[in-house]
């Protein structure tokens, strides 16, 4: 087979951003949570947000995902019926979106899983929440998704308590992605995992992003994780975005004093 004969996907077309954020801000009393945040996220893009603890990255993620009400700004999401500002949207509608178009992967799997419900139940519950009723179909889809995140089918009836940390995190990902979301928010998804388990999870996430055409926003303090996972990077300090750009550009040729400090502080291995 000649290389030139290979059939490639059609060229990337000009498309609308999936998420358009403008002047987003959140105050905690006198203290800035995050301020003046603006960016566009396009379909299939992975955006990393880095910064130290207290830099505002988790506040920003919560505002974007609708877990926190921002004081100002817009978060416009491209829904099936056109762009909608999720900040001004009714609570019920935002919740429906969070179950269908969006997903949220917590750092601690306990925050994203029902620990007393079986692995299959954790995945199936999400399908039932969007209207699936046929038991056989739900179980089949749950088994399919457990397989995709490398959990053996004979563990379907086990509770997440019986799983290792890495398996719990993979189960949380399956629970979140089973409904076919367009946008996934992740808060330190590899935090608290052993390095070897992290690697497996990173590879899994990369594959899912590619195969499902997902967009993702990943908050982490781990620069090695964003280098491997994120197309674009945003650096936050004291609630403000101090620098953003292509991930390798921000890491290899940082422009802002804080980013230079952050990059030069990483231990070489």
């Amino acid at each position: 087979m000649g290389v030139m004969d290979m059939k490639l996907a059609p060229p990337d077309q000009a498309e609308a951003p999936l998420l358009s954020v403008r002047d987003l801000g959140k105050m905690y009393g006198e203290r800035i949570g995050c301020a003046d945040v603006s960016f566009d996220l396009y379909p299939g893009e992975v955006l990393g947000i880095v910064g130290e603890s207290g830099s505002g990255k988790s506040t920003l993620l919560s505002c974007l995902a609708g877990h926190l009400q921002p004081d100002q700004g817009q978060v416009v999401f491209q829904t099936a019926t056109g762009p909608r500002d999720t900040v001004t949207m009714a609570e019920a509608e935002r919740r429906r979106m969070a179950r269908t178009d969006w997903a949220f992967v917590h750092q601690n799997p306990r925050d994203g899983l029902r620990m007393g419900v079986s692995a299959g139940g954790n995945v199936g519950e999400r399908l039932m929440a969007i209207g699936a009723r046929h038991y056989g179909d739900i179980r089949a889809q749950a088994i399919d998704w457990l397989g995709r995140v490398e959990i053996r089918p004979d563990r379907i009836d086990d509770r997440p308590r019986a799983f290792s940390g890495g398996m719990q995190q993979r189960l949380q990902i399956a629970r979140n992605l089973v409904t076919g979301p367009k946008l996934v928010f992740m808060d330190e998804p590899t935090g608290g995992l052993d390095v070897s388990v992290q690697a497996r999870l990173l590879d899994l996430l990369r594959g899912l992003v590619r195969e499902m055409g997902l967009s993702a926003i990943i908050v982490t303090h781990d620069l090695a994780v964003v280098r491997l996972l994120a197309d674009r990077l945003m650096v936050m300090k004291d609630g403000h975005v101090v620098e953003q750009g292509l991930t390798d550009q921000v890491l290899d040729d940082p422009q802002h004093a804080y980013t230079q400090l952050l990059v030069s502080s990483v231990l070489q291995v």
Binding site: L8, P11, D12, Y42, E45, D231, R232, G245, L246, Q249
Partner: peptide, 11 residues
């Protein structure tokens, strides 16, 4: 823009 460079690197 970053996304244009991403597309350039891809193809």
């Amino acid at each position: 823009e970053p996304r244009q460079i991403i597309a350039l690197r891809r193809r």
